[in-house]
Design a protein around this nucleic acid. Sequence first.
DNA 1: AGGCGTCCAGACAACGTTGTCATGGAGTGA
DNA 2: TCACTCCATGACAACGTTGTCTGGACGCCT
Lengths: 347, 347
Amino acid sequence: MTVDGRPTMNDVARLAGVSLKSVSRVVNGERHVSAPLAARVRNAVDTLGYRPDLHASTLRRTDRRSATIGLLLEDVGNPFSAALHRAVEDVAREHDVHVLIGSIDGSPRREGELARAFTMRRADGLIIVPAGPDQSYLAGEIRADTPVVFVDRPGHGIPADTVLATNALGAADATRHLIAHGHRRIACLGDHVRIATAQRRRDGFTSALRAAGIAPEVSLLLPGLHTAAAAEEAVLALFRRPDPPTALFTSQNMVTVGAVRALHRLGLHRRVALVGFDDFPLADLLDPGVSVVAQDPATMGRTAAEALFRRIEGEGGPPTEFWISTRLIARGSGELPPPARGSSRVG
Amino acid sequence: MTVDGRPTMNDVARLAGVSLKSVSRVVNGERHVSAPLAARVRNAVDTLGYRPDLHASTLRRTDRRSATIGLLLEDVGNPFSAALHRAVEDVAREHDVHVLIGSIDGSPRREGELARAFTMRRADGLIIVPAGPDQSYLAGEIRADTPVVFVDRPGHGIPADTVLATNALGAADATRHLIAHGHRRIACLGDHVRIATAQRRRDGFTSALRAAGIAPEVSLLLPGLHTAAAAEEAVLALFRRPDPPTALFTSQNMVTVGAVRALHRLGLHRRVALVGFDDFPLADLLDPGVSVVAQDPATMGRTAAEALFRRIEGEGGPPTEFWISTRLIARGSGELPPPARGSSRVG
DNA sequence: AGGCGTCCAGACAACGTTGTCATGGAGTGA
DNA sequence: TCACTCCATGACAACGTTGTCTGGACGCCT
């Protein structure tokens, strides 16, 4: 009958004229409750609009499960993160678990704050796209039996399951594809190399060049591009040079979009070949269609979440690495030939 | 010294040789603590790796705040939801609050389950993109002082702040734009009309037609399209008819993409005019650029979150409606003229 | 009838934390 | 010196729930 605040189990018990514990039994569907008592309790629950307090329950229960996990993404607004998020949510739903989310935005400090905040909320586990160089701050969580899974990038300083795309292989595929179409001067535009994925993709690029007997030119390696705008600017500058490349490999989503935009502005979109790392919506509708090495964020998210739940359910054993393969999708931009120069291909 | 589980305040107190309450005081930065005692406590906190349990704290504190809000979106994977999410997160961060998220996927049942789950986790407030026809199941939360804000679509059955785009006005703008470019046979492709936004946009469309003296033709109103694939199929069928329209108004993101894809397949993308509701990435890079009535999901999310936090902080007063205006962006597809027929426009 | 097991229900403590109150000592002013 | 205030610290209860224990009623077997 109190007006303020939420009704508690005690209120329900009082209204139903039973003990606190009996309400608990009914609410949790325990056995050994008579039908009439259960009915009285359910009635009281309905009339009061009682909602159990999951936190109080978690505090008291021996399993200590909060039925909540934490997901630390790069930026919930970008399509890769959103696809990961969606896959994790789907797996979580199968386990009746809900998800706390935050964007790291490339800041190690923010990463730590989010991990701490979710830990204080007693998340049953964490899935992290690590930004910082060191995740040893999580050692306490591991010790306290809160499992951690890294996804998209490797974590450092603690042992944990990790889900990675085959970044180097995928980048090498893209590069070989361009080489197979006759290109020898290929630029590699990528994110900051302190980001592990960017580094691995660049490694794949240069090793594919070397394998084809082409020496990578430093002036064609353009790192440090994080936004579409920066990439667009970099491509415009690239083609102001005296000896520009005939093909581009863009090692990240936003960079690909910026490069496409620049090529359109320059009117070179049908003359300069392009393969991007990571697929994006509408890539097939552009002119020409943008060839990409597609990652599979949905599989990555699902794999990470499934690994996390196995750990939560007590699976032991050493940390596992899961490699999710990439797939080259030819749509036109990657199959453009280099402009015919003095030399011919005739044997 | 216990190995299993997390260290508690009691463990810290024992190690520091002080009382439980003193640890609480230090951890919460209360005054009236001597420097040496504080130092001893902080030392013990660090060596044990102690993390406060926010749930136990919330349970005991008089303010009862969990520093967590719930966000119920249509689908965290789609760009509109992701942009909303991002804006809400940014505002939440300013308040040191974290966010529980879930996708409703158009299911009223799922909406209720998520609301219940977040309520059981004692979220301080909920932001909801409602899917179901009735939200009166939230009455108990309102009574328990948990504020609710609806965004993108109106809620029903309870009084709550609501953030809406000017759907009818925006749709009318798009329609007038097509009429101004000479079109009289315009098709309207939209989502299920039981979705409030779809209904409002269709109303805007038909009222703009009538205002221009054009009677809306039922055969050109194509509702019930929820995915890009369905929209693509519908457009292909539309142009198999004997007397197809000269322009399309697509009232939703995915529908626009499906329509663009169909027009490309038919080779009609430079001959049939198109204005879409809601902007999407790369719309400017397509051929022709896709003219749209852009919503502003970031402003919608921010407005909703700010309203929610004002309510959480105790602001009273009747529910407010916030209208976020749309903006027509001409990029080419909406400015295509109808094909010249027998009739001429010469006065 | 006696003994035993099963079913139902409640009393009580405990989870990890904070609000309230009590206590003792130091400082202040007359 | 005494009364008073202020500060530092601790003891204890309470938040809403569940695990454990106890006890009574009932049925069944010998």
